[in-house]
Amino acid sequence: MPSLLFWFFSLLMLIGGIAVVAFKNPVSCALSMVASFVGLAGLFIGLNAYFTGIIQILVYAGAIMVLFLFIIMLLDLKVETGRKPKLGAVAAGFVLVIAFAIQLIGVLSSSPDKELPKLDLAAGAAHYQDLSPKIANTLSVDQKLPDVHIIGQTLFTGYNLPLQILGVLLLVATVGVVVLSKRQTN
């Protein structure tokens, strides 16, 4: 990923994140969170994780954000916007960020850096020759990274049980949400 695009998407992501914390109006917060997640998805796609980038936009910027906006508008939170933030909490937040950033820079400066390695599509094609000829074909003939195919292949061979447990979790969450939001009548 060229440096210019990296910095563009990183700044979009970080400014969106700061705006989530800084804005008073919850609707503005939700929309700046969309901007933040779009920047994050750009970074994912720059890291050759195309599937994850698209999922990030579809799930976070699409589904979760609509849910947030729906709840914000359902609760009609105009009264909440007039409050002053507490000085102690603001100071604690700033100290936390600065301490975290200093620690991060300390750790990063004492560990070795790494340049972006080049993908070896021919070796990947040789590896997937037996596992999945279709992936190997895309890698060797089209010279492209079939990200979705590789993730699907890994998901349904190596992570079959976790996937089914995840399905049960989503079912439990759905039932739980219905039970929680049903108006209690007795």
Binding site: G17, V20, V21, A92, G93, V97, F100
Partner: peptide, 9 residues
């Protein structure tokens, strides 16, 4: 860190 600050403040 930004997210953590938001949770705190």
């Amino acid at each position: 860190a930004i997210g953590l600050a938001g949770v705190v403040l």
